[in-house]
Write a protein that binds this DNA or RNA. Structure first.
Lengths: 197, 197
DNA sequence: CATATTCTGTGTCGATCGTTACAGAATTGG
DNA sequence: CCAATTCTGTAACGATCGACACAGAATATG
């Protein structure tokens, strides 16, 4: 394998792109901004990532595999489905506000909501949103199967409800809501758990 | 008052702009798109509305005064605060999905969430979002004052919680959720009302 | 060392962005 | 009818967009 070696760290550059897309979204993050943030000239960027659209998809995948998964995994933690959902909501409340290391909001919840993003990106982002809804449904179904929840519970409605709370918290985090404020909303949402506390 | 009369209906053009901004957001709606949708050439548009940013602000104001107010008013309807909040949530579930006459989603909930919109627009949109939060808080405080709710209720948390549900429903409506699906989430959210049903 | 290969940096491409100059058309007031 | 005024339509402005041509520099292989 001949050829001049790449002078930048592909993974580090991808992560820098992820943070910029996270902050600005797809359109508002220009290639000029991206080159600056990634420390790479545009021909090198195109050689490594093909196009802005492909770069976004790669950055989004990286986001899902790291930032996203770390929080969504909390749904599986806890002895009961109720504990799992509460862990997920509280985890979101902690993760969504701006911190020293990450922007406010969520690439999944807030990505491609304005239509008009490239179709492939809209498809990828919506798929992850629906995957989370499926995960919620699955955990609720399992809770019904093992008797934690009555089989009279409307899984569809309950799943969409918790998804709504999560996505709404993402918007509020963008508006500057603190983790404590979002925790309050999350705790309140748990009061809707079927059968009470 | 001399001068050639305007050949287009300013209000009709503004409403056409509103629908386009509603569907596409600020950046994705180009002046070319807007001229097409409004049936006006760009010099006439600039003469009537000054700039794209000012046009958005005017369209947004129009949205708030019509589409928005019609739904938010439901918070005040109903004998109790609980009924008011439920009316608001159900009203949102009906209004948010795409219909024959209007795009999916909400200019208030989903506007200027990607930063990087002109500062004046971000300021205006966030202000309306916070106004709705204030309205929720006010209705809850009133409910405590007249004894409907215990004064142990965390108004801040409860208000943010219902705002989250509304904003999350707006995202799901953009993803194609139906009114029936959003109603399910709304009904479920009412189960979190303090003191149970 | 020679060659093939791959990256880097400069500079620029055509397209589109928001915006406006300019000339002609349509109106009101004198 | 003339002047002043305001709109309409054509055409184009400079800026920025995403993307790339090209030449030179740096590596591996033979």
């Amino acid at each position: 394998m001949a050829g001049r070696p790449r002078e930048f760290d592909r993974d580090a550059a991808l992560e820098a792109a992820m943070f910029l897309f996270w902050r600005k979204g797809f359109e508002a993050a220009s290639m000029h901004d991206l080159c600056d943030a990634m420390g790479v000239r545009s021909p090198s960027l195109y050689a490594a990532f093909e196009s802005k659209e492909a770069l976004y998809l790669a950055a989004f995948e990286h986001y899902v595999a790291t930032e996203g998964q770390a929080v969504w995994d909390k749904l599986g933690e806890g002895a009961t489905a109720r504990a799992g959902v509460e862990n997920l909501l509280i985890g979101m409340a902690e993760a969504l506000p701006k911190s020293r290391t990450s922007p406010a909001g969520c690439m999944v919840a807030l990505g491609a909501v304005s239509d008009e993003w490239p179709a492939a990106i809209t498809r990828a982002v919506r798929k992850v949103r629906l995957d989370l809804l499926d995960s919620l449904r699955a955990r609720l179904e399992a809770a019904i199967a093992n008797g934690e929840l009555s089989d009279a519970v409307d899984v569809e409605a309950l799943g969409r409800f918790y998804l709504s709370v999560i996505q709404g918290m993402a918007i509020q985090a963008k508006d500057g809501a603190t983790a404590a404020e979002l925790r309050g909303a999350a705790k309140t949402a748990m009061a809707a758990w079927p059968g009470g506390a």
